[in-house]
């Protein structure tokens, strides 16, 4: 009885695993290709969903795209070629990491530009403050300062 129960449970689990990720059982001869498949499908955005990678989405178009990534990998195409293939059809939207090119220079460059601007502003403020505090001594204070330094030396 217990044996039957256990068998049933295993069968249920197997069925569930199959239902949850129907194409997780793709055949790869080469573990490197399998790794590339995982990385590629994790780095592409499903065009139908707003923020899901195609390896994580149940939408029909994501399934089609996974199939295509798999076929192209089997044909021996490079990662770059496969990304180009998808971008040609679905647009830059499918890449989670926008490419560094003319149109995306602002996107990639702005954080660094802001960093430089921020650093310049901080440096300027520090300089201005330093000068201001040096100038802030009145003639009287200066005299006292001189006196203190002087007295210390003679001691």
């Amino acid at each position: 009885m217990a044996a039957i129960g256990r068998t049933l449970m295993v069968l249920c689990l197997v069925a569930l695993a199959g239902a949850v990720n129907a194409d997780a059982v793709r055949d790869f001869d080469d573990p490197v290709v399998e790794k590339r498949y995982r990385e590629l499908t994790a780095s592409m955005r499903c065009p139908k969903c707003e923020n899901q990678a195609i390896d994580d989405s149940n939408s029909p178009v994501s399934a089609d795209m996974r199939d295509r990534v798999y076929t192209l990998l089997q044909e021996g195409r490079s990662d770059r070629e496969i990304q180009d293939f998808m971008v040609d059809r679905f647009g830059d939207y499918v890449l989670y990491n926008p490419r560094l090119e003319g149109r995306t220079l602002l996107l990639w460059g702005l954080p660094f530009a802001l960093l430089v601007v921020g650093a310049t502003v901080v440096a300027l403020i520090v300089r201005v403050r330093r000068r201001a505090s040096a100038q802030a001594l009145s003639a009287e204070e200066r005299a006292r300062l001189d006196e203190l330094i002087h007295s210390e030396r003679t001691e």
Partner: peptide, 12 residues
């Protein structure tokens, strides 16, 4: 099979 649709970038 949606092959032409795929070439056209159709997602729905």
């Amino acid at each position: 099979n949606g092959d032409l649709g795929f070439e056209l970038g159709v997602y729905g």
